[in-house]
Design a protein around this nucleic acid. Sequence first.
RNA 1: GGGCGGAUAGCUCAGCUGGGAGAGCAUCGGCCUUACAAGCCGAGGGUCGCAGGUUCGAGCCCUGUUCCGCCCACCA
Length: 886
Amino acid sequence: MSDGLLPKGYTFHELEPHWYDFWVKQGFFQAKVESPEPPYTIVIPPPNVTGQLHMGHALNNTLQDILCRYKRMKGFDVLWVPGTDHAGIATQNVVERELSHEGLSRHELGREKFLERVWIWREKYGGIIINQLKRLGASCDWSRERFTMDEGLSAAVRQVFVSLYREGLIYRGRRMINWCPRCMTALANIEVEGEELDSHLYHIRYPLVNGQGSLVVATTRPETMLGDTAVAVHPDDPRYRNFVGEKVLLPLAKREIPVIGDAYVDREFGTGALKITPAHDFNDFDIGRKHQLDVVQVIGEDGTMSQEAGSYAGLDRFACRKRVLEDLEKEGLLVKVEPYRHRVGHCYRCKKVVEPSLSLQWFVDTRPLADVAMDAVRTGKTRIVPVKWEKDYFNWLENVEDWCISRQIWWGHRIPAWYCQECGHLMVEMEAPSACAGCGSGRLEQDADVLDTWFSSALWPFSTLGWPEDTADVKKYYPTSVLVTGFDILFFWVARMMMMGLHFKKEVPFRDVYVHALVRDAQGQKMSKSKGNVIDPLVVMDRFGTDAFRFTLTALAVQGRDVKLSEDRIEGYRHFVNKIWNAARLVLMNLEGLNDLVDIPQKLDSLAHRWILSRLRQVSLEVDEALEQYHFNQYAHALYHFLWHEYCDWYLEMAKADFYGEDPERKALARSVAVRVLERILLLLNPVMPFVTEEIWQKLPQTSGSIMEASLPEPEPRWRDEDAEEKMDVLMAVITGIRNVRGEMNVPPATRVEVVCLCEEDSSRRILDEYASTVTDLAKLAGLKVGLVGEMQKPRMAASTVTRRVEVYVILEGILDFESEARRLEKELTRVEQEFSITQRKLSNEDFLGRAPQEVVEKEREKGARLGEKLEKLRGHYERLKTLKT
RNA sequence: GGGCGGAUAGCUCAGCUGGGAGAGCAUCGGCCUUACAAGCCGAGGGUCGCAGGUUCGAGCCCUGUUCCGCCCACCA
């Protein structure tokens, strides 16, 4: 498999598509339902068919892919179900816009022809986002790709609708709903986004019919006064108490309407008199019902004024507002206009102001379903991670209102309800009935409305597996293991999947819900086209490679914190990809033409090998822990640090001596350990960086096939080696100490110097003796003398430091600059003195000694002793320097 | 109005059950050392938002407070 050398650079442009195609062809992404392996299941949050891959998708799917690839390596039968959502309103809007370019409207085309057009559009563009997910490397089981309007999923929708209807959990009723005059449909409450706007509060005078004065009401929507059917005051309000029961003359409309008393009215707000428009306000509707008021609908479906608005009929609602104000002004009834900032509901699809409206719609009685959904989380059947989202989940479900599920659009699942044109009988059935169950008439008409997109999404975890059929997939893969999603659809989607899953499967849809953050720009601003701060994932992948991009998202994916992304960060992590590549190059270079790899022996003598294996084991454990806990950033950082600053900076540097040395046995062992560790690093990194790890894997000797076929071994307990880690710490500290002195004393790297190390302990002396050549290589020495303190003469012309109970003298015969060495030592002395005095203060504190745990006190004592010793030695060095100088 | 999150180095952020303030980037100095200048070796830089409290000990716990962000809510 190995052809030795890696090319100088990693060319992701060619390699990424190459390996992705290879994986798909090999069927590595396919779940094996008949396999005995335990299932690990994720259903993708289906992107809208109209979607283009944005940063949110990229983060969401990178995290899912990491989990899937990791679990696959650990021996699970992984199923990641992909698919897209038909996105009712969004898609209809897109196709309507396309039509309008041809000068057509959907109404001109007619329902059937329009739907044909949408399907054509879907054929043409529906695959875009899917291909973009592939570009991202998503290891979905494409053989199981689903679409919410597939035949199977549509059957599930009908089944659920009919069942809930028969159970009395779906009903049809005339209610106040939010109406979008642009999209011309009802919306569910959560589909309305409240946005704060600078507006005005208009004070309008309503004269009493009896001529005995007037009432002034305050409103933000003066045009709705045309639909007023009462004025309400607080029954205990001394200002207005006497008006209750009287009538006022509604200006402009010239209708007489009653003054009613209702405790709902806030005496403090506005004028304390409230105009009541039951047809266009949720509260007014309730009050209207309580007082049996007339309902006058003055705003039509398209946002223009209705016939009821009299002379204002046909005007756009906002034009009407202007006219109403002008007319009131003329009549001297506009008392006051004050600036007022308040929240106005906007359609979440088209962002236009919605109108509360009275309308006949279908609803889900959510309460019973919501209670079960709450219980499942309360009892831990589903775990929400991070837990803080549980609060939002509960809060929403506790206050949830009935869900308006009918939409007056054409693209979507048609409501399976038929009305008899003869007797008006309503039938809700899976399939179109042929005759009226009431009167037998064949003149039946199906309800014109379609279902809310989120209705079918709510079934996604089981409808995609084949439900209502009792398929093998349903049996094996439900409940799913985890749902990975953004918090923005916690209510829209997650809560409703919980309700539907529990109701129809009697089992939660997922064990875990991992809620990740939003991706923002470098300044923390939400990315939006209008702000022009959008970073396009496709552009990023093109520039920096998919692996670098994925790694960046992962490294930044901290629980509970938004991801602030900038191209600089991605560029930084591209360097990491490069680092892996070059580490692999080094290792492979030294394998070229040789095939002497050996198994790692049970007992190793070499400190470097023992150390790196011990560290590798530790990092493997950290990785596993991090991924199990969904701490994606920790996963990324652990590997980043290990590969770069342990494997490359220390281990490979030390191994070079063996690589280039003459001893064939040492050579073979070093090569073998280097390769084994590299293999393991590749495996651990593979979930986040699938492409580059595959490419390198393929070049390694003794690996067969794809990295996707490899399994990740358990971290070997026998590799744990505290002794090696301690010894390496000594070695690294001494080497760093020498480098430090060299750097500060401006000794050029090319200049090799003599070093003398005086050790306090025999153990350190032995380590330094044994690894003298390592120290010499890595610290660029001409020679190294090691001895115990007292055994050996302290060198004269030397810069010095103390570390790990080792006195390090860098001999600078003839080039020692006394002044700068003195300054350097003074600086170090000051620092150590400060640290030392802190520990001394603690150790002389009776309370500390008495109350702190023994081990903490002991630790402090050791630290004090260490610092004291170090301080003493440094002082000695400083004194000697002064005498030497003179 | 209610709730939540954040405030730690110049920037972006880690910091788990209280016990030696960390990383990456940026900055400064030195290096083309035969894997990598997309690199190597060093260095500097912090009153952990502010004020109290608990504790032998607080970035971490409690109270208050300021600023920023988000979510929810029918005061017109």
